[in-house]
Design a protein around this nucleic acid. Structure first.
Length: 696
RNA sequence: CGCGGGAUGGAGCAGAUGGUAGCUCGUCGGGCUCAUAACCCGAAGGUCACAGGUUCGAGUCCUGUUCCCGCUACCA
């Protein structure tokens, strides 16, 4: 069912140039892509591997504004950091471009223009809220105001939390911009929309059956469950029109008369970055870019994380189809997410292992991280990175199995044959068995890589070293050396052939180590088809003096990393406080003493606390208020664990009208101090006061 | 609520098209000592979330339930 392809275009999600890369990005998209590409190149395939920085979008301008710098400074900074980190880590892009390049602007504008001229967009003017102070149109989520249905004064622009009705920001009474606090005004603005609904039918066919324009395009059985599932759910839910322009001055300008101040929506222009990068690369290398995007015999593969599925499987294919002549992806092997030490990776909380920091702190240990991440990549479900697991895998598998085998083969040869490849004599059954095993591994790795199962493929490659260790254990050359040196020659010849084979099997996964081993056995890079051969090293071939391939990771190194992670999150909190200009909430109206005395505020003690399932912010507390013991729900789960809260004395507003949340009645409110960063702290009596004591 | 994904020995995970439940790590026992206290062999350990159903036969298909993750909401 699968087609014959003569050319590969492989893309990895363009990193948003708003921050550095962490191991989740690597395990999710870049490492699998790199393995795939290195493998295809090893096979001698014609491959282009493109990536680059995604440098547009409102998040970057907002951040620039906040920090009082130019958006260009931000993207320049992270473009360099990320490009360098990729290179140091050994992600071998053919080009790492950036969407601020003129080539990209030109390409993206051409896409827009051409589809526009076909009449496949429609333009519509709508009223949108505009912040006159910040000079920005506001997305719904940047507006708060009074809910028209229930009068809640703090409804968000997209939904009222109190009555649950979903809103448009323009429905709110007394709207406020959360950027500047200013009252936004209504202003007409017109945008271009892509009516995705027009494309439902062929998309459904393409996703579900793999057919496109009347013929079999790809095998949907090879697509991952989660990818197809998510696409179907989008299509079944009906595809609405999507605005593909924005009111911003940062981005690719809309190439039409009278479209001043409009840029292409970042999600429209980013995937086109794959194409512009290919063009730049082709130009520099004397290639024809069109062959890589417009030829039926080109296999297009997008490596992404699960957050990008809809763009790569629905929106971008629609764009490509509208352009006409472009190939659609043969597969979009989206990975799930990687967790870290039991928690979701979070840039904001600095809960991450940053790639550039790892490279600095673990110099020369690229392959160790490549190995671990490839072994635990979230190919079919979320997976977990822990430093202990990293240590165990490096020490047990890379050091113990791979490094050790290579070392044994070389040391034995040096001791007994002065570092040259001994003659291979008659083959015994054990020899034949191990030869057969080496031979079988080639097909197994190939099969797994072809269906994007890199963990399994890597495990197969490692089995080669396992087989080598087993072979040495069974033949025991160190015993035979006194009685039968000739036999030992045969054994070590084979052990060395296995070592040479390892350089091929591991090349795509652990390129740095493969290179090192080649240095040990003095050979050049070998092509894939040689894998399984026992003629890689001729008799009498001189070896180089080996060094250790991997070294053990000590406990204290691991502990230091875990420590760092924990203190990172704390520092981040402090830093955020210091850096962020502290915005103070405006003063409230005067309230009378009587008003104040209406509130019954008391000291209480938290007796029990549990995390509320289905909620990530609420803790369910049982509080002794002196008057009684009551249940209070408090939105502090992000800041405190149930354990650390139990036994704490707190202040409680006890006569607040009860309110139901998540189906549980909350009878009061725990008073918290909160600053503009959202940091929370209990308001606790300085000395112990008996429960029920009043606050005034 | 809804949508998507998941639930497999102590841990982490494999198990297209249904036919004796596998791998890595850990544990226990043994072997070996060439090798970075590494390597090799063997063993223990699983009601494959739960309940029904289809089938000669289900981890694998269907229905329902529970729990976990993401989107969403909750933040008195």
């Amino acid at each position: 069912m699968s087609k014959k392809y003569n050319r590969y275009t492989v893309t990895a999600a363009l990193p948003y140039a708003n921050g550095p890369l962490h191991i989740g990005h690597i395990a999710g998209a870049y490492l699998p892509a790199d393995i795939y590409v290195r493998f295809q190149k090893l096979l001698g395939k014609d491959v282009v591997f493109v990536c680059g920085s995604d440098e547009h979008g409102a998040a970057i301008t907002l951040r620039a504004k906040k920090e009082g710098i130019n958006p260009q400074d931000i993207v320049d900074k992270y473009h360099e950091i990320n490009k360098q980190a990729f290179q140091d880590f050994g992600i071998q892009f053919d080009i790492y471009d950036r969407t601020s390049n003129p080539m990209h602007k030109e390409t993206a504008q051409e896409f827009f223009k051409q589809i526009h001229d076909k009449g496949a967009f429609f333009q519509e003017t709508r009223e949108q809220l505009y912040d006159p102070k910040a000079n920005e149109f506001l997305a719904d989520r940047y507006v708060t105001g009074e809910c028209p249905n229930c009068g809640n004064a703090n409804a968000d622009g997209d939904q009222c939390e109190k009555c649950g009705s979903s809103l448009n920001a323009t429905d709110l009474k007394n709207p406020k911009s959360s950027l500047s606090g200013e009252t936004p005004v209504l202003k007409d603005t017109s945008h271009w929309y892509l009516p995705l609904g027009d494309h439902e039918e062929w998309l459904r066919e393409w996703i579900e059956k793999g057919t496109y324009e009347g013929s079999q395009h790809h095998n949907p059985a090879e697509w991952k469950n989660q990818v197809i599932g998510q696409c179907k759910s989008w299509i079944d839910g009906g595809l609405g029109p999507r605005a593909i322009t924005r009111d911003l001055d940062w981005g690719v300008k809309v190439p039409l008369q009278g479209a001043d101040g409009k840029v292409l929506y970042v999600w429209f222009d980013a995937p086109i970055g794959y194409i512009s990068a290919t063009k730049t690369w082709a130009e520099a290398n004397g290639k024809d870019w069109e062959a890589y995007w417009k030829s039926d015999d080109t296999k297009l593969v997008h490596f992404i994380g699960k957050d990008n599925i809809v763009f790569h499987c629905i929106i971008f294919p629609v764009i490509l189809k509208l352009m006409g002549g472009y190939v659609l992806p043969d597969n979009v092997p989206a990975n799930e997410f990687l967790n870290l030490e039991g928690d979701k990776l979070s840039t904001r909380r600095n809960w991450a292992v940053w790639l550039h920091e790892y490279l600095e702190e673990f110099p020369g240990k690229q392959d160790e991280l490549r190995y671990v991440l490839a072994s635990i990549a979230p190919e079919s479900k979320d997976s977990e990175f822990t430093w202990k697991d990293y240590q165990a895998r490096v020490n047990n598998e890379l050091v113990g199995i791979l490094g050790n085998f290579v070392n044994r083969a070389l040391v034995l040869t040096n001791k007994n044959f002065e570092g040259t490849v001994p003659k291979r004599g008659e083959l015994y059954d054990l020899d034949k068995q191990v030869i057969a095993e080496i031979d079988a591994i080639q097909a197994r790795i190939e099969k797994n890589v072809e269906v994007y199962r890199f963990r399994e493929a890597l495990a197969e490659a490692m089995n080669l070293a396992r087989a080598g260790n087993k072979y040495l254990a069974e033949t025991e050359p160190w015993k035979l050396v006194k009685t039968d040196p000739e036999r030992v020659g045969t054994i070590l010849n084979l052990a060395l052939q296995i070592t040479a084979n390892l350089t091929i099997a591991l090349e795509a996964f652990l390129p740095h180590s493969a290179e090192k081993i080649r240095g040990f056995v003095n050979i050049e890079k070998l092509e894939w088809s040689k894998l399984g051969s026992i003629e890689l090293l001729p008799e009498g071939h001189a070896l180089s003096k080996p060094s250790l391939l991997f070294s053990k990771i000590e406990d204290q190194v691991i502990e230091a990393q875990i420590e760092k992670l924990k203190s990172n999150t704390q520092n981040t909190k402090v830093e955020a406080e210091e850096n962020q200009e502290v915005t103070i909430e405006p003063a409230k109206d005067i309230c009378t003493f009587d008003d104040f005395m209406k509130m019954d505020i008391r000291v209480g003690t938290i007796l029990e606390a549990e995390k509320l399932k289905k909620s990530n912010k609420l803790l369910k507390l049982l509080v002794d208020t002196g008057l009684d013991q009551r249940t209070i729900l408090s939105g502090i789960a992000k800041h405190y664990s149930p354990e650390e809260v139990i036994g704490k004395q707190v202040t409680v507003l006890t006569n607040l009208a009860p309110r139901k949340m998540m189906g549980i009645e909350s009878e009061g409110m725990i008073l918290m101090g909160e600053d503009s960063t959202g940091k929370l702290a209990f308001v606790t009596p300085e000395n112990v006061i008996s429960n029920g004591g009043v606050v005034r």
